[in-house]
Design a binder for these strands. Structure first.
Lengths: 213, 213
DNA sequence: CATCGTTGGAGAGTGCCACTATCCAATGAT
DNA sequence: ATCATTGGATAGTGGCACTCTCCAACGATG
């Protein structure tokens, strides 16, 4: 398949595909002559994944490249590969250590983890982007005076754990490691807006149920 | 308080505050002389909300202005106000009607809503940004060949409904309508990254539980 | 009263980023 | 032989969130 055909089938302009090639988001085609290259299904699939990461997942191009490199890297074991891929995903801003609310937020998160017994998070917690992002979010809520008590958080955490169980179950239905890492990334990036859509629809539904239309 | 004091207390540069004033994200201060204005606590609070919406919630400035205008508008009833605020929030891309996967996605979503009995979503569903965004997400997943069966979606939807119940319970703890609308917006925008942080931490926890460290 | 640093306002400018248009030499179809 | 097309490199575009510069008007100080 030529570049222009790849463009037609994917719906992505040739100029944009060239850009992705240059940025290393897409592996080069097989050079047929000095000025022509051949692309195949793997390019089409990767291109669609790139578009999904960038357009649906809103990843910056540089981040997408990093994430993809982890998916491709089969020199490491699954756990490391998975962790590397997930930790390179974008996350909220880091906690502002200057702000006084950060300390309170950190304590609240600690109490939360204690309550629900997430041992992993407590040990390596301060390193995990998700943990730092959580502290930052809680600090923001405290600063704005929104409620954010441990009971509420614990209940939501419990629900998110059930979501995670579903996620991992789904991941396990895929055989190869590469696919599992890819689906873990997809789970984090593509299913996220899906879940948030479901949450908003649920809010609309529940709101209608309580207050009428 | 002067503009420069407001800047100090909020940690936002004066130039940026001026920009927000110009863009209508912040109501003007009380003019004391021809060249000086006085700001108060309401400005500080609003400024923090603006920063949270833009930095944590990643809202474009124009969208933030629209959302804030709905929070301020007390000429409408709560339901309308709430809906207007939530519907003006950013959502994923609209479904691509050209793509063949969109039809399948729409059908899958319909089956899902049927299964879990969200009447509201079925009636006004095609209008809701959340519904359109969900169809778009499902279409993307189908196109990439990721699993997205109705059983999985139904389970996640059930969990998201429980999340929404928590959300609305929390909203009801606030007395005034303005506060309720504000907290609904905060719930959609600020608690979203919080929930996603919890999901990723839960994935890390569950992953460690299944496969070790 | 003169002076000089500070303030608020307005418009132009900056930096970043995801593309995108242009150009060029080498092909490949006719 | 001719000429549109292809892949590759480079420079440019447009949008956005600020941010810089300038200016007239204060207002505290000597």
């Amino acid at each position: 398949m030529r570049l222009s055909e790849l463009s037609e089938q994917s719906g992505v302009k040739t100029a944009t595909i060239k850009y992705y090639l240059r940025e290393g988001l897409l592996h080069p085609g097989h050079r047929v002559t000095a000025t022509q290259a051949e692309y195949d299904e793997s390019h089409l699939r990767r291109l669609r994944l790139v578009r999904a990461l960038i357009q649906v997942g809103r990843l910056p191009v540089a981040t997408a490249r990093e994430v993809l490199s982890h998916i491709d890297d089969d020199s490491l074991g699954r756990t490391i590969r998975l962790g590397a891929a997930l930790w390179s995903l974008p996350h909220g801003p880091d906690p502002d250590e200057e702000a006084p609310e950060t300390a309170a937020a950190r304590e609240a998160v600690e109490r939360l983890l204690d309550r629900i017994g997430w041992a992993t998070s407590q040990e390596i917690g301060s390193l995990s982007p998700a943990h730092r992002s959580l502290v930052s979010s809680v600090a923001t809520l405290i600063r704005l005076g929104y409620p954010c008590d441990v009971d509420y958080l614990a209940e939501q955490a419990r629900l998110m754990h059930q979501v995670a169980v579903q996620d991992l179950d789904m991941m396990e239905t895929h055989p190869t490691e590469s696919e599992q890492v890819e689906i873990a990334v997809a789970s984090a990036v593509l299913y996220e807006p899906l879940l948030m859509s479901l949450r908003r629809m649920a809010q609309e539904e529940e709101s209608a149920r309580r207050y009428g239309l």
